[in-house]
Nucleic acid binder design. Structure first.
Lengths: 114, 114
DNA sequence: CGGGATCCCCCCAGATACTG
DNA sequence: CAGTATCTGGGGGGATCCCG
């Protein structure tokens, strides 16, 4: 029984599966790409995701928050309320992995073009 | 417009998305884990995936093949036919990425346990 | 502005049966 | 053994409306 075959408490078969579940979701990867460079507000984020509905963005953000990858900050001193989203420490630790996946994706696309 | 925001011919938003799509699917990650250590036949693979139906395995394998991540070899000199699946060069190039994701998954699980 | 609640449709995956 | 074909339902996601 290697680490790759270990059963986790989340029901996944291996830690790789855990990572995939955290990243899985229609808009999560691009949301994370956006938040890697700057903190963003809900509507700003929404406008940067053409085709994403408010409901979907809300769902994806909720999942990322409950997975402790991002966090939100709410400023209630104004009306209307201002909220912004940013990566947590765990989210920041994902960046090298995301970059490795992005690099492989580029090489893959290049290889398929041949 | 950075590389991460580039639109690809597959309709993804960034190469990261391409990688996620290649890996996305209920059983793909564990199939790849299995094939990383040895070539396997259809039924052997199926038995190593408790809960996976033949239909699902067939679908996942088909997608991995059409994505050029794995390939199959069919030996028709026998009846019944023997087939086996193995990683392609592109599939092999995925291994470091998979290991990075697996390592992050382990650290993530550990961090959540605190 | 930043969401949640509800309705509804469509597609994915399971079950089952069949085949080279 | 190694799949494919057909049927069927349950859930995910879009559209819409509502609210603090």
């Amino acid at each position: 029984m290697t680490a790759l075959q270990m059963q986790t408490r989340h029901g996944e078969v291996c830690p790789l599966d855990t990572t995939l579940k955290v990243l899985d979701g229609k808009w999560k990867s691009i949301i994370l790409c956006r938040l890697m460079t700057e903190d963003l507000r809900f509507t700003t984020l929404l406008r940067s995701l053409p085709g994403c509905t408010r409901r979907m963005l809300s769902l994806q953000l909720s999942q990322l928050i409950s997975d402790h990858i991002i966090a939100k900050e709410v400023d209630t001193s104004f009306v209307p309320t201002k909220t912004s989203y940013h990566l947590t420490e765990l989210g920041l630790s994902l960046i090298p992995v995301i970059q490795a996946m992005d690099t492989w994706g580029q090489q893959y696309i290049t290889a398929l073009d041949d």
